[in-house]
Amino acid sequence: MIELREVGRTFAGPPEVTALRDATFGVDAGEIVAIVGPSGSGKSTLLNVLGLLDTPTTGTYHLAGVDTGSLKERQRTALRASTLGFVFQAAHVIAHLDCLGNVTVPLEHLGIPRRERAAMAEKALLAVGLGHRLRARPNTLSGGERQRVAIARAIVHEPKVLLCDEPTGNLDSENTASVLELLESLVSGDRAVVIVTHESDVADRAHRTVKVVDGVAAALAA
């Protein structure tokens, strides 16, 4: 699903910062992979590269069999929108839209016909256990519920890879556990989940761990 070969990312300065170097690892469908490491080590940089939000300065990155380095900007956008789902530390829900409206957003940009959107969004909200809050405004939801809306939004278009940057960073232990459970349930025969975290109990639930220290990513054995 994901194939990184000697991927590096250097931010042009000044000062020039090499936030990631020589990352070589893969993620297969059906896997949960945790990316761990100290603060500032390059975890988010790695995830942004994986998410096609950022372009590596060296190395090659194959996503779903496509060499992403050869893609034009619009093709990268299309590949990202079609095959990836994002969950961030903050839920980033849009305040003036209700849950259904928030979850529908990715479908709009993918040009999915209007008739199909509501049904897909409803299904996703049902999957995260929010079937009863379809019309709720985000400001009436708890932090855990808001993160569930974000997860529903990340899976509504059936992505192949779910990329999560500190998805439980803003949650208490109870909510953390249930969100992790939810993420585990979303892994399937053709979907992988990548979670950036610095919480060891989150990392413990992953099938594999990639440790990043000072920009050097090393895959640890399971």
Binding site: D67, L71, A78, L79, A81, G111
Partner: peptide
Amino acid sequence: RKKAAGPDPLAGLARKVRTSPRD
């Protein structure tokens, strides 16, 4: 952006992204 040329490497994999004016 420049016009894309050649065969589409994303055929069958990714939907075209576009936002309709109505949306």
